[in-house]
């Protein structure tokens, strides 16, 4: 066991002694600072939230009367209902120029970058050993091929965890520096299936971060598997990022087919099941997605580990 921990430490050393890993973290921090700066620059003068909400309601009302599109009118009605509920119950909406609002926005907008960064790291973990030839040293020591690969995978998950924590920490620190602590405990009001739901903003944030971690870790797993199967990091990284970026479009086009709910990538974002969101295909549930993910996980890891253990090393 202590040997296995040694193997994981080795993988960690190789990830975090690389300049590129720190550059990725630097980019993350830089992005947050940029977004916070822009948000602060364009933020309207705080003033009274009631006044601006009342103004918005009036505007939405006007639009609703003018439009002839019933779908659009319905969505306007929903927005109005949320605003009205907040006004009636004296719940201040989460401001974009508050630390909580900033963190929620950061997660929504920069989450895909986290997928990209982890895909870059995971996609190189095995294939780089092949391209540099160091795999020969790694596999001619006493640990079995199974332990070597498993230690790399565990290290990848741990790196994903560290990056997620860094994401949270960076966005919190940048948010506090730019917007102060105000509104940290604000509540979020959303309309879910025609019903008003009120939830704690911090609660929603931690839940979404948790789901985000699962999603990022799964994309990391895919990049890791491709990296092992094809021994080529460009392919592993490229494919994972391509899917993460373009699958939503593809998914939207094929959503009308019921079978599309069995596609892995339609099940990776569990935040689809949180209040205010709807799953891609009707009838999908959280439990369904978890089962689909597990089945794919077992198949992907079985193929990957088997291939790594069996194949000749000719690097």
């Amino acid at each position: 066991m202590s040997k296995f921990i040694g193997l994981v430490r080795n993988e960690h050393m190789k990830t975090f002694r690389r300049l590129s890993t720190w550059i990725l973290l630097g980019i993350l921090l830089g992005m947050f600072i940029l977004i916070a700066g822009i948000t602060k620059y364009y933020a309207e003068d705080g003033g009274n939230w009631r006044q601006s909400s009342e103004q918005q309601v009036a505007e939405l009302q006007k639009q609703a009367e003018q439009t002839e599109d019933p779908v659009y009118a319905a969505s306007l009605q929903e927005d109005m209902a949320v605003l009205q509920y907040q006004l009636d119950n004296d719940i201040a909406p989460i401001q974009t120029d508050s630390v909580l609002g900033f963190m929620l926005d950061a997660l929504l907008n920069c989450g895909p970058f986290l997928i990209m960064f982890i895909a870059i790291i995971a996609g190189g973990m095995v294939s780089n050993e092949f391209s540099t030839g160091t795999i020969k040293l790694l596999l001619t020591k006493t640990p079995s091929r199974f332990s070597v690969l498993t230690s790399k995978y565990v290290s990848m998950l741990f790196t994903t965890f560290l990056f997620t924590v860094a994401f949270l920490l960076f966005s919190f620190i940048v948010g506090v520096i730019f917007f102060g602590f105000d509104g940290l405990t604000a509540s979020r009001v959303v309309l879910d299936n025609g019903e008003i739901v009120k939830e704690s903003g911090l609660g929603a944030l931690s839940r979404d971060i948790g789901y985000g971690f699962i999603q990022v870790a799964f994309y990391g797993t895919i990049a890791f598997a491709l990296s092992t199967l094809f021994r080529n990091s460009a392919l592993a990284i490229g494919f994972s990022i391509f899917i993460a970026l373009f699958f939503p479009t593809i998914s939207y086009l094929i959503a009308r087919y019921d079978w599309s709910k069995y596609i892995l990538f339609n099940n990776l974002d569990l935040s689809a099941y949180t209040p205010g969101n709807t799953p891609i295909v009707d009838g999908m549930t959280l439990g369904f997605s978890v089962v689909v993910m597990l089945v794919y996980f077992i198949i992907i890891t079985a193929i990957t580990w088997l291939s790594f253990i069996k194949r000749d090393v000719t690097a």
Partner: peptide, 11 residues
């Protein structure tokens, strides 16, 4: 560190 790496892999 390369040697530390391989030392961790051995008994």
């Amino acid at each position: 560190l390369n040697l530390v790496h391989f030392a961790r892999m051995s008994d």
